[in-house]
Write a protein that binds this DNA or RNA. Sequence first.
DNA 1: TATGTGCCGTGAATCTTATTCACGAATTGT
DNA 2: ACAATTCGTGAATAAGATTCACGGCACATA
Lengths: 241, 241
Amino acid sequence: MGTKERRQREFEDREKVFLDCARDLIRDEGLLNLQMSRIAEKSEYAVGTLYKHFASKEDLLLALAAVDTEKHVSMFQRATQWKASPRDRMVAIAVADMIFVRRNPDFFRLGQYVFTEVVWKAASPERRQAMLAASDPIADVVVGIVNDAVAAGELELRDMSAEEICTGLWALSAGTHNLVHAEGVLEDFNVRDPYRLMCRHTQVMLNGYGWHPLVDVSDGAALDALIKRICNEVFDDLCSE
Amino acid sequence: MGTKERRQREFEDREKVFLDCARDLIRDEGLLNLQMSRIAEKSEYAVGTLYKHFASKEDLLLALAAVDTEKHVSMFQRATQWKASPRDRMVAIAVADMIFVRRNPDFFRLGQYVFTEVVWKAASPERRQAMLAASDPIADVVVGIVNDAVAAGELELRDMSAEEICTGLWALSAGTHNLVHAEGVLEDFNVRDPYRLMCRHTQVMLNGYGWHPLVDVSDGAALDALIKRICNEVFDDLCSE
DNA sequence: TATGTGCCGTGAATCTTATTCACGAATTGT
DNA sequence: ACAATTCGTGAATAAGATTCACGGCACATA
């Protein structure tokens, strides 16, 4: 009797339904106005059922962020598998980030919110664990590229570890997301395309680490060409503009 | 009759009392458990009085963050006024950030929270404006250092603007704060002293921009010496450890 | 088919907190 | 001294997250 299994499957499917409804509501009405009762209403289940799946509202938000993170990770994995030099693959990571954020405009806001002390601590330990597990592969992927560069003789670590180099690049990316979403900052700075700028800053850092082949960071045309090449060769299906 | 003025002063003093109580409560019980009624209780005023000062709880949090930001800015200003090369002064900005965050461990969490869509939009427009005004000088200060370097012939902008360079350094700093507070990431990476690492990454980026005099970023001793010198010469009173 | 058992969805009731506002005390003006 | 005004008060209200006693449904057994 596969009844138990069917029930199990139905339960899992329902979780997806709830998350999809929540995502739609956030898109349409904003994170600010998200209400548990509205998610229940939209998904045509009772509030109590919703709470069978998520320990709290914060728990649901964390689950939602974890789903996004999985998509994010899969883009990074495509970047690593690209047949190109380690340095170009590292830039491809930045480009992946750029494309992902453009295609998922709510991702950063949600991520920013769930990593907040208030929300993080209000979620269940299991969800927190799942969130961390979902983002784990990011580190592996990026550290892998650094190690490839070292193996290829294109980068000398000297007294830094591969992880420390990754921390710098990761901070650059995380910080760029911050600034993009911080009211007014980039407008004041007259920055038109912050993610292109992030790619350029990535090149600046890679040069700073002495990561060969060095590039001329002031050559905007070369940067645009590389970004375009990455879009075509790695993220063909995702770059429509 | 200076009565009006006295009233006015009392009102302003009370605002400070509320903010101090809120800060203490956050320190002792966490942002998660902050309640308006507890702030009122602790400050020995009625809840209604609290609401005479702050349009909402979020409004109060933003006011609190603005106070911190002013302290933050004043440290940056000390860094700029230091008699040293533009490059060293730029590193001093990073060191200021490091010292400030260590002395105000709740600052980042609060800042992260208030810049969240949910909180930001729930605060009054006046507070938002005040918050932006408080952080405004940061940009001026940092752009000023870049311009000094250009004027001294130590940095060529080529096709980048001073603001764009600042964006990179700012992102690095903001991102480092993120990673420090993101559960588990730096532990996994075995990063012991993330802010020292941030200073090093700052040097990496400055080298990447071709900002003279170039430094050997793998020379940890030189980095520590510079940090120590900045602590002694610029932030003497704040570096006790 | 009739009946017993346990699982699971339900949503009205509860609880927690932010927020309001009618009141009265205190102060000012005449 | 009295009216007018300002300002603090905290009980009442409102909004929304969370709970849990109930009942229906599927399966097991006779």
